[in-house]
Design a protein around this nucleic acid. Structure first.
Lengths: 147, 147
DNA sequence: ATTTGTGCAAATCGTTTGCATCTGA
DNA sequence: TCAGATGCAAACGATTTGCACAAAT
């Protein structure tokens, strides 16, 4: 078992469980937040953008405004339920896997894929004077081999 | 000598030298491109954004439109004179150091700093089926220690 | 003369914001 | 009740684009 499967169903995803989880995180379990949390955490590890999440919400007949989508994604991130991954200049991705891991970024598809092995650095660099490390991000850019 | 000092003045920066360098790269040495190349490569390794480059150009009394700045930055990147670094969701940075190296990203300042040591991965991850690695990027996020 | 580059202004895209209205505890 | 959340539409900042004009070969 790798770091990737850290939270495989340690919470569940019934409305009640989600509600409890939000409350634990200090967030009011509103209609929208419960619905979005349901979408985000129902499946396993996901890399989702605001736009995709809104599409999924609409498909589930839970219309949520984009503003609320963004609010929610950021609140969830602050609460430690999501991890923000900035790798593409354009879009921002939110990773439902908050454990320590890194990513492949598929150029062209603009898709993120978890790196299934624990990759580390040969040597953690010493930060400049007066600075402390907050995170180490490794992104391995890949592209489809033109078959 | 580390990978950081790879091109320390292997080219020089007189207008003539810049002109030759651009031609070698297959780029017409226009007024604007020569001026921008001069600004970019005069000093050592830099991490520059389109906006900053334009400010510097104006300070040097070489007005260049933002559109041309962007065109030029991308052309230089394709020509291998610059390296694009996407680490911040917002701005895009262009690194005049095209050698293999990684970065600190100073949160708050939104500033990039070269990592002065050659940092590698303990293990280069195997890319998914049908994909090949195009680049490996390591970003160490840091923040000022609140003194 | 022909090709290529430049500047301007408008357009685009993802994201944020202001604010009136609604909701959950 | 009333702090906090939501939706809408307008605002935003970085980047791109369309197109007439200018410059390089």
């Amino acid at each position: 078992m790798t770091a990737l499967h850290h939270h495989s169903h340690s919470h569940g995803h019934t409305p009640e469980q989600i509600t409890r989880r939000l409350r634990r995180a200090g967030l009011r379990p509103t209609r929208q937040r419960v619905a979005l949390a349901g979408l985000l955490f129902k499946r396993g590890d996901r890399h989702i953008s605001a736009e995709i999440l809104q599409e999924e919400a609409q498909a589930m007949r839970v219309p949520v405004s984009l503003a609320t989508i963004y609010n929610t994604l950021h609140q969830f991130t602050e609460a430690g339920l999501l991890r923000e991954v900035a790798v593409d200049g354009a879009r921002t991705y939110f990773d439902t896997n908050v454990s320590d891991h890194h990513h492949f970024f598929v150029e062209g598809d603009n898709e993120l894929i978890d790196i299934p092995d624990a990759v580390g650095l040969t040597e953690v660099p010493t930060p400049p004077e007066g600075m402390e490390i907050t995170a180490v991000e490794v992104v391995v850019r890949v592209r489809r081999t033109d078959a």
